[in-house]
Structure formats: structure tokens, C-alpha cells
């Protein structure tokens, strides 16, 4: 992460110096910082709502029930996490919410899943294999209906916008499976985590 952060900023400044857009870049710095806070603040309300809902689902045993249902799959995928961990249920809920395009619901649930995965993490400062896998599943963006895109297409008078559902579903499903396979392969080659707070490779 250190290198990425460094490169983002240094490359933009060098490029800006060449293209003569230094003032734009400085302005982007300010607006970017503002935007991040805006995003985080706008998350508070919906975050609170879903965290509350999920707490109810957890207390009532509903999450456990769902987790039991999909256990055969998650047990294999997340073999480093104890079967009875609430993380398994939250991961399932996060996936379901994402699939239905409920990003507002998926993010709070996903964050809770991360917190639970953190409890099983042997080194609290670096990402566990389970976390990497979970995020691989999330970044692949599996979604049944690309509602925003269809909305934009309909807005510009594209003929029959729902036609893109099938190809999108195909691409996203394959990319999703590919992400899981990648995570599983990299997990084998990457330097394993070492127990808490010892020096592990910063990337």
C-alpha cells in the first residue's frame, strides 16, 4: 500500500508538470479530501440502520440459520475460519445483498464480516487469507441486475437496454469465479502471515 500511495501522488505530480495541469491536481487534492469525508459521513445513517438490522438478525439466530444453509460452500472457501463464526453468515448476507444490487446494505454487512474475520486473524496489522478471499469476492462485483447502467442506457434511448443483463451476468460470474481461484492460488505462493505484530511484508 505504501508504494501505491507514493506512486499515485508522485506520478500525478510529474504528469501534471508535463501536461501543465499542476493547478488542477492541487484542486483535485482538496476536492478529493472533501469527497472522502462526504462519502464517509453519508455512510453513517445507512450504516447505523443496517448494523441495527443485522444485530437483530444475529440475536434471533437468523444469520446462523443462513450460515448453516450455505455452510458446505463457505466451509471449503473459508477453511481457516471456524464453522460457527458469525463471519460466515455475514459473508453470505453480504454476497446476497451485493447480488441484488443493494450496495448500501452490503457495505455495512461486509464491514461487520471484516471485523469478525479480524478476530480470527493471527496478525492484526495485515490481511488474513480469508480477508483477501472475501475482498476478492467483493471486488469482482457480482451482481444480478446492473440497475444503474440500464437506467443510463434507457435515458439515452438505447434500444432494449435490458438486453445487457445476460452478457453482464456472464462476465461478472466468470470474473467472480476467476477472482476466487486467483485468491486461492496466491494464498499458496504469497509469504504466509506470521503471528501478531512481527515484521511481515508491507505491500
Amino acid at each position: 500500500m505504501n508504494w501505491i500511495f507514493y506512486l499515485f501522488i508522485v506520478v500525478s505530480i510529474i504528469t501534471a508538470a508535463i501536461t501543465g495541469r499542476l493547478s488542477d491536481v492541487v484542486e483535485a487534492l482538496l476536492s478529493g479530501a472533501q469527497l472522502s469525508v462526504k462519502i464517509a459521513l453519508s455512510l453513517i445513517g445507512i450504516m447505523a440502520f443496517w448494523l441495527g438490522m443485522m444485530k437483530i438478525a444475529q440475536k434471533s439466530g437468523l444469520i446462523e440459520l443462513i450460515a448453516k444453509f450455505i455452510k458446505p460452500i463457505t466451509k471449503r472457501l473459508f477453511n481457516e475460519i471456524p464453522e460457527d463464526s458469525p463471519a460466515i453468515g455475514d459473508i453470505a448476507m453480504n454476497f446476497t445483498a451485493n447480488a441484488f444490487g443493494l450496495t448500501n446494505a452490503a457495505t455495512p454487512i461486509g464491514i461487520r464480516a471484516m471485523e469478525e474475520l479480524q478476530e480470527h486473524n493471527i496478525d492484526k496489522t495485515s490481511a488474513s487469507n480469508a480477508m483477501c478471499l472475501f475482498l476478492a469476492m467483493n471486488t469482482a462485483g457480482f451482481q444480478l441486475i446492473p440497475a444503474t447502467v440500464i437506467g443510463i442506457l434507457a435515458g439515452v434511448g438505447y434500444p432494449n437496454p435490458t438486453k445487457i443483463i445476460a452478457p453482464v451476468l456472464m462476465v461478472t460470474t466468470l470474473a467472480f469465479c476467476f477472482a476466487i481461484i486467483c485468491a486461492k492460488i496466491l494464498q499458496r505462493i504469497w509469504k504466509p502471515q506470521t503471528a501478531s505484530n512481527s515484521e511481515s511484508e508491507g505491500k
Binding site: L135, A136, A179, L186
Partner: peptide, 19 residues
């Protein structure tokens, strides 16, 4: 997601995402 658990050493997570 990593911010929520204060993890900055993300190991291969970014590579998988970009792949």
C-alpha cells in the same frame, strides 16, 4: 473494508482485485 479494521498491509488483495 480494510480501513474498517485498520489494516494497511493488504498482502495480495489488490493483485487479486486487479487481476
Amino acid at each position: 473494508y480494510f480501513g474498517s479494521v485498520k489494516i494497511s498491509k493488504i498482502r495480495y488483495a489488490l493483485i487479486v482485485g486487479l487481476l
